Amino acid sequence: MSHGLHTFLEGHPLIHTLWVIKKDQWKQWSRLEDTVKEILSLKKQLGCVGYDVAIDLSGLFRSGVITWFSKAPVRLGFAESDEGSPFFYTHRIHGSMKIHAIDRYLEIARYMGCKINSIEYPLAPYNPAPGILQTLPKKYVVMAPSAGKPANQWPAEKFGELASRLSLPSVVIASGGEAGIADTVVAHAKGNAISIAGKTGLKELIPVISRAAFFVCNDTGPMHLAAALNIPVFAVFGPANPVRTGPYGDIHTVIQLDLPCAPCYAKYPCTRYDFRCMKDLSVDQVYDAIYRKTKAP
């Protein structure tokens, strides 16, 4: 996995070894020499371990190659992967693209003979009371206004207006590089939001999110962390497909306009339809969805 995110898994009792790669660097032609050296080193090291089984849940060409590097006699992945990764598998499992990603991953577990009647989210050890908690209100909502893809981002100004209407203050989370988005939310929240963007790692976010009354977000990574912690999620969706990547569980709410062009899976805001899946979704609609579930003015 890429640098930085691996710290979230450090110390996990179910993980013996973490293999960390610079996957973003692999896309840079200017770093080609370093990338080739890293790939060759990874191939050599993985091949020396003696793995029995390699499982690829990503279905990318890169991840398929890594399963091959493992020299595992059994290499599992999805038959529907479209980047050529199935070429590297010894066993290809059919996982429907019409179900949630978690249920899709469980199909591989089922194939291996695992029981999948209950789902648990074991987390790596973390500090349940980091210092950041001392700076937060006693009761609060957590907002995650950023998103991995620009097209999945509801305007930060609307998040701010939403925060101004809630009875509880909002704690806005984001990476340090996205602090500007969090600042925009705070600027439009009329004093009812604070930003802790860039002040926590993923492990510090766990206790912050676990104490929230509920979680408001775009389609983003921390959304799944909130769902795993059983915190009610209100997720704004535009071009993404909540059936596949929405918050997993019955207590969560997806807020999405019913448009014939959605989901389109766009990475960037569209010009053909003026990005109406996000632009036309009003603060009133999101607020009303929250109010109906929480009955909190």
Rank of each mutant, 00 (worst) to 15 (best):
I116H: 00
L133K: 06
V74M: 08
A129L: 13
A109D: 09
I93Q: 09
Y111W: 14
G131E: 15
F78Y: 15
I93V: 15
G95D: 13
I119Y: 05
H91A: 08
F88E: 06
W68T: 00
R104C: 06
W68Y: 07
F61W: 13
I66L: 13
M112P: 02
G59D: 05
K71C: 06
C114E: 11
P125D: 03
A124D: 10
F78H: 03
F69M: 06
G64H: 02
P122Y: 07
H94I: 12
F78D: 02
I119V: 15
L106R: 13
I102Y: 11
V74G: 02
H100K: 04
Y121A: 02
R75V: 04
I119F: 03
Y89A: 12
Y121P: 07
G84L: 06
N127H: 14
S81M: 04
I93T: 07
S118N: 08
P73M: 01
V65F: 06
I116A: 08
S85G: 12
G77N: 08
P128R: 11
D82L: 14
A124C: 11
G59Y: 03
A109L: 14
R62Y: 01
P86I: 12
G77D: 09
S85H: 10
A101G: 01
S70E: 02
I66V: 14
E120D: 10
Y89F: 15
E107H: 12
I102A: 05
M112G: 01
